[in-house]
Simulated scan of single mutants.
Amino acid sequence: MTDCFIHTFPGEQIRLVNNPLEDLDDLQLATLGVEFIQEFYSFIQPLSADLMVVFRDTDWSAMSNIAPLLPHWYIQALSAPSNIILGAGFTNPDPQVSQAPQLSPEILFNWIKTALEQDCTNPDYRITWRIIHIYATRTRLFNEQEFQARQSLLLNSNAGELNIPIERLEDGLWVSGPVKETSIEPPVTFALSQEYGGLSADMMIHWSLWTQPGQPEQIALQDAISRLLNKGWEKA
Score class of each variant (00 low, 15 high):
residue 2 T to G: 01
residue 6 I to Q: 12
residue 6 I to H: 09
residue 12 E to K: 10
residue 13 Q to N: 12
residue 15 R to N: 10
residue 17 V to N: 05
residue 19 N to M: 12
residue 24 L to M: 15
residue 26 D to G: 07
residue 28 Q to R: 12
residue 35 E to Q: 13
residue 38 Q to S: 14
residue 41 Y to A: 12
residue 44 I to M: 12
residue 45 Q to F: 05
residue 46 P to W: 11
residue 47 L to S: 11
residue 56 R to Q: 15
residue 59 D to C: 11
residue 65 N to K: 12
residue 76 Q to H: 14
residue 77 A to K: 06
residue 79 S to G: 02
residue 87 G to A: 01
residue 88 A to H: 03
residue 89 G to K: 00
residue 91 T to L: 06
residue 103 L to H: 08
residue 111 W to R: 06
residue 115 A to C: 06
residue 116 L to T: 01
residue 117 E to R: 11
residue 117 E to F: 06
residue 117 E to L: 12
residue 118 Q to M: 04
residue 119 D to E: 14
residue 128 T to D: 14
residue 128 T to W: 10
residue 129 W to C: 04
residue 131 I to Y: 10
residue 135 Y to S: 07
residue 139 T to V: 15
residue 144 E to D: 10
residue 145 Q to L: 15
residue 147 F to A: 02
residue 154 L to F: 10
residue 154 L to R: 15
residue 158 N to L: 10
residue 158 N to Y: 05
residue 159 A to I: 08
residue 166 I to P: 14
residue 169 L to H: 13
residue 178 P to Q: 12
residue 180 K to W: 07
residue 192 L to K: 01
residue 194 Q to V: 08
residue 195 E to P: 01
residue 195 E to G: 03
residue 198 G to L: 02
residue 199 L to R: 06
residue 202 D to E: 13
residue 208 S to M: 01
residue 209 L to G: 09
residue 211 T to K: 00
residue 225 I to D: 00
residue 226 S to A: 13
residue 228 L to W: 01
residue 229 L to C: 06
residue 232 G to T: 03
residue 233 W to Q: 00
